[in-house]
Amino acid sequence: MIDKYGFHEVPSSPSIDKVGVEERVSRFQSRSIKTTAKMQGLKMVLSMIDLTTLEGKDTPGKVRQMCFKAAHLHDGHPDLPTVAAVCVYPSMVGIAKSIVGAYGIKVASVSTAFPSGQAPLDVKLADTKYAVDHGADEIDMVISRGKFLAGDHAFVFDEIAAIKEVCGTARLKVILETGELITLDNVRRASDIAIYAGADFIKTSTGKIQPAATLQVTYTMLQSIRDYYDATGKMVGMKPAGGISNSKLALHNLVMVKEVLGEAWLTNQWFRFGASSLANDVLMQIIKTESGVYQSADYFTLD
């Protein structure tokens, strides 16, 4: 429905059949992906990673090291893509940008009082503006889960819209923190609100709460993107984050994206993995697939 100002209204969200979701998801997990398809998939996964460090103990040195890794995943192997982006706190955006900018790797910054989101709106806006001013290409905001669970959905919607305005040309990823939303119905509702409020991406989790990016949650969010696309013809991106640390799970995610949304989403423009240790596992799989020999973490850079 389009309102009198020309905006799409948030439709009521369908209720989610949890058993049905689990059934569907378990089928994605039983796929066997081998040889050339696996290799393509693994390289695609690498190119979709947002290499992330979001810790209180992050130092400029740690961020520089991660940025170097983002650009040189495994120099022993030519023809590997770089990751899509590095994801850091706002105070580290300038440092990250100065290193990865030259490689065409994006800099994503979390903002809005990540990870809790418990701050007044003006602080969140200032936080976001700081990151954008220092060169962030993408903003990963968190929604106010407390307000959402209290039923104040309009507050959540308005907040996302306000942040989107400050982002300017930076793309906005909206973190739902699904581990705190309890039910899939809530996940679906929050996805719809985020998308209609202007999110360029919806993202599962901060990585600070368990469970994080389960396939069930990601599937529910993909459905929301699908319905929005069918209603408006506009694409929205998806970023599962947290808990995806092995290649197999990452490949299952790709299968799910292809079958729920279609091939158009299989680029790092529309799909990302938020992860810190996934890259090494994918690299080890790639080398293993080529050499036929099981690999050891000893021969890959530390995260």
Partner: peptide, 8 residues
């Protein structure tokens, strides 16, 4: 073979 070639 997989045991003795395993890098780990």
């Amino acid at each position: 073979s997989p045991l003795s070639s395993h890098m780990d």
